[in-house]
């Protein structure tokens, strides 16, 4: 705790010490909860969109409590663009793989040729892969939207 306080005092940016320390403590748990919402989407309310938005909100909180440059140390502009591309590619790539291996587009049972899990289990697992892709794309796009809009396009200190 003392170390956290010293670290935040040294930075001299953003909001007051209480807000900075509290958000530093909270953000790992927010991100863990976002991952849980994505992964547990089969059995509880949740899924790619909701979990991605929670993950993106953690970066928004970091940018609001400290400053935008500080939050971009953790996910730079290039990385976020790359993650958005990866998410969209995972989704489209899964559909295309299904088409290549003899099914229809996005018909996950066709992937049974690759790893024999059974066609019905593959439909469940294919939904999971697709949700991870959606979560990545939504997370990075939320962060991009906030960063670009908040700093008027300059990607520096921001709000």
């Amino acid at each position: 705790m003392k170390l956290l306080q010293e670290q935040t005092q040294k930075l001299k940016i953003g909001e007051s010490l209480i807000i900075q320390t509290a958000s530093r403590l909270l953000i790992p748990f927010i991100q863990l909860f976002g991952l849980y919402v994505i992964v547990h989407g089969h059995y509880s309310p949740g899924g790619g969109f909701q979990g991605g938005v929670i993950l993106g909100a953690s970066f928004v909180l970091l940018a609001l409590a400290f400053d935008q440059k500080f939050s971009m140390q953790y996910m730079s502009e290039k990385t976020s663009g790359l993650l958005a591309n990866t998410g969209a590619l995972i989704f489209v790539g899964t559909g295309t793989l299904c088409a290549i291996f003899g099914g229809l587009f996005l018909h996950y049972s066709a992937l049974d040729v690759l790893i024999p899990l059974g066609p019905i289990e593959w439909r469940s697992f294919g939904i999971f892969i697709v949700e991870v892709g959606v979560g990545l794309a939504v997370m990075s796009n939320m962060a991009i939207l906030f960063w670009v809009l908040g700093s008027n396009g300059e990607m520096d200190e921001g709000l």
Binding site: L145, V148, L149, G153
Partner: peptide, 24 residues
């Protein structure tokens, strides 16, 4: 409606970007 909410967020983002450009 899950997908419609995501579209609404995207539309709001693009509209805010255009508004900022108009203000510039």
């Amino acid at each position: 409606m899950l997908t419609a909410i995501v579209v609404s967020v995207s539309v709001t983002g693009v509209a805010l970007a255009i508004l900022l450009r108009i203000y510039r």
